[in-house]
């Protein structure tokens, strides 16, 4: 059975070297995180790359980052690469408690952005990628809302109507000084 042929995977997750782990050739990344790594924060929503509840951040060597839909991307795609998952953003204290959130997480919390939160990891990652992009190249005030629309617009949330996610992202970008006035 070709499906069960395996190969080793080695990558960096949230700054930690992982592997080599011997896993099936065709294992999807989401299954690797859920079933082999115990990281279940990247959620299975549609399983077809549409809802984006599963996205993680892929970090490139040139300092840029991007969202990846791991429900339709094989685990071995990430061989030798660096990713960040929702579990990697907050700072944890010695006892494992969260002691600090990233600016997007903080704003989402303060704005009551999510309800059930199943989609929240995808939104956090997408908005974090956006913030990191704007840190390299700030956005003009007039383009701010459209930029957020574009960055988050494919993500599906069934609870909230998106309003608080968007307002929170806007507030975070403004407070981080990533808007060019005028």
């Amino acid at each position: 059975m070709a499906e069960l042929s395996t190969r080793p995977l080695r990558l960096t997750i949230n700054g930690q070297a992982v592997g080599p782990v011997e896993i099936p050739d065709d294992l999807m990344m989401i299954d690797f995180l859920h079933e082999y790594q115990g990281l279940t924060g990247s959620r299975l929503g549609c399983g077809q790359g549409i809802c984006r509840a599963c996205v993680v951040i892929l970090d490139h060597d040139d300092g840029t980052s991007e969202e990846m839909r791991i429900c339709i991307t094989g685990a071995h795609f990430f061989h030798g690469k660096r990713i960040r998952t929702i579990e990697g953003h907050a700072e944890h204290g010695d006892d494992g408690d969260v002691v600090a959130l990233n600016p997007i997480q903080r704003k989402f919390v303060d704005h009551f952005a999510f309800q059930c939160s199943y989609c929240a990891p995808g939104f956090v990652n997408a908005a974090t990628v956006l913030v990191e992009r704007l840190e390299r190249e700030p956005v003009a005030r007039a383009d701010l809302e459209a930029t957020i629309d574009q960055a988050l617009g494919h993500h599906i949330c069934r609870c909230t109507g998106y309003v608080r996610y968007y307002q929170a992202a806007k507030a975070a970008i403004e407070e981080l000084g990533l808007v060019k006035e005028g």
């Binding site: 079933e35 279940t40 924060g41 907050a90 959130l101 919390v109």
Partner: peptide, 16 residues
Amino acid sequence: AISKVSGAKVFARDIR
């Protein structure tokens, strides 16, 4: 909020 925004196992779905 903090658990939910940081990817903690809050759903039955998350449990193995």
